[in-house]
Design a protein around this nucleic acid. Structure first.
Lengths: 187, 187
DNA sequence: AAATTACAGAACATTATGTTCAATAAAATA
DNA sequence: TATTTTATTGAACATAATGTTCTGTAATTT
């Protein structure tokens, strides 16, 4: 059985209202009252869909980042140079292109310093990629540095790179940004 | 003329109340009402001292990080190997020792993901240090990487290193952490 | 001793949160 | 189509925080 058409409508009304509000104010400044007014739904209806404002954010984030990362970054390699420098670079450039396409929605989200939750969701899928494909390729150099530190370091480096890129207004190309990142983060 | 003794008392009462509350809950969860109750002062008295909760945070942060950074990290070099690898390493280790000494207050603050303001204040003095002493020493390697990206990268790398360190419960020594950081961030 | 200043504490308007409930409208089911 | 199930509405409600304003009181300065 499909989900009730009313549920779908309310759900997307909330989502749209939230994104529209994100264009105007930062996450912390958005109240549930704002969302209710913007979505034009009853108070109790919101609470029938989401427990808190953070639950809503969680839903937004998974939809956003799953789309960007899950598809290709963690996809099974279809070629024989998986894990190589070329492969890693290609995947990072690919990811940056995806982020660039979503620039309109993301630039507002990324500039919102208050919502660390965003970055948690952002880093989660990237961390898997780092552990699987990047770290094994460079353990030779840094044997005595704890592995979890290395993973954490690279994830944060990528996050801050994307932050920097968006803060600059995406002036650089994905290829350039990827180059900067790889040169700084991986020797 | 000295400041009114009553003002001093109220001020420190607010500060102490805030720090005590930070031991219990995260920044976002602390209300002005909590502070008033904990400090045992009148409502209007708080607003006579601080406009908002963020103003109070700002005051706390400057006191905290100015103490840690300003003194030695940005001090005039008293020796002739300023800017060298040994000098940079010594200063970073020194900074980490200071952070370690303040672990009680800082661990609560650092684990509070919500307050990005903390990290802004944390990075501000470090950024000056990076630009003055670290970047000039390695521009040879990375000529075509934008300088502001390099500075941003290294600052964020140090911030995430400290975050990681505290998250692990400061198991590693400052010397070890400094080693990890320098090896990962500066080739 | 007099003037100044800070504080207490209460009152107040405003705003947001989260819950509850009966009526209504829409959808799914038989 | 008729019936049942479910979602939504909208209002009401209790709770709690914000920020302002005011008066009397107490401490401090001059």
């Amino acid at each position: 059985m499909r989900t009730d058409r009313r549920v779908q409508k309310t759900h997307s009304a909330i989502m749209q209202a939230f994104e529209k509000l994100m264009m105007k104010k930062s996450y912390d400044d958005i109240t549930i009252q704002d969302i209710i007014d913007e979505a034009n739904i009853g108070r109790s209806t919101f609470y029938a869909h989401f427990e808190t404002k953070d639950s809503l954010l969680e839903a937004i984030c998974s939809g956003l980042f799953d789309h960007i990362f899950a598809q290709h970054l963690n996809a099974e390699p279809g070629h024989d140079f998986s894990g190589s420098e070329e492969d890693v670079e290609a995947k990072i450039i690919h990811t940056l292109y995806h982020l660039q396409e979503d620039r309109k929605r993301l630039s507002r989200i990324f500039s919102c310093e208050s919502a660390g939750l965003f970055w948690e969701y952002f880093q989660l899928p990237f961390s898997a990629f780092v552990q699987r494909e990047i770290v094994p390729a460079l353990t030779a150099d840094i044997v005595d540095v704890p592995k979890d530190y290395v993973v954490d370091f690279i994830c944060n480096a990528f996050t801050s790179t994307v932050k920097w890129w968006f803060y600059q207004g995406l002036k650089a190309t994905p290829e350039e940004v990827s180059g900067y990142f790889l040169r700084m983060a991986l020797r």
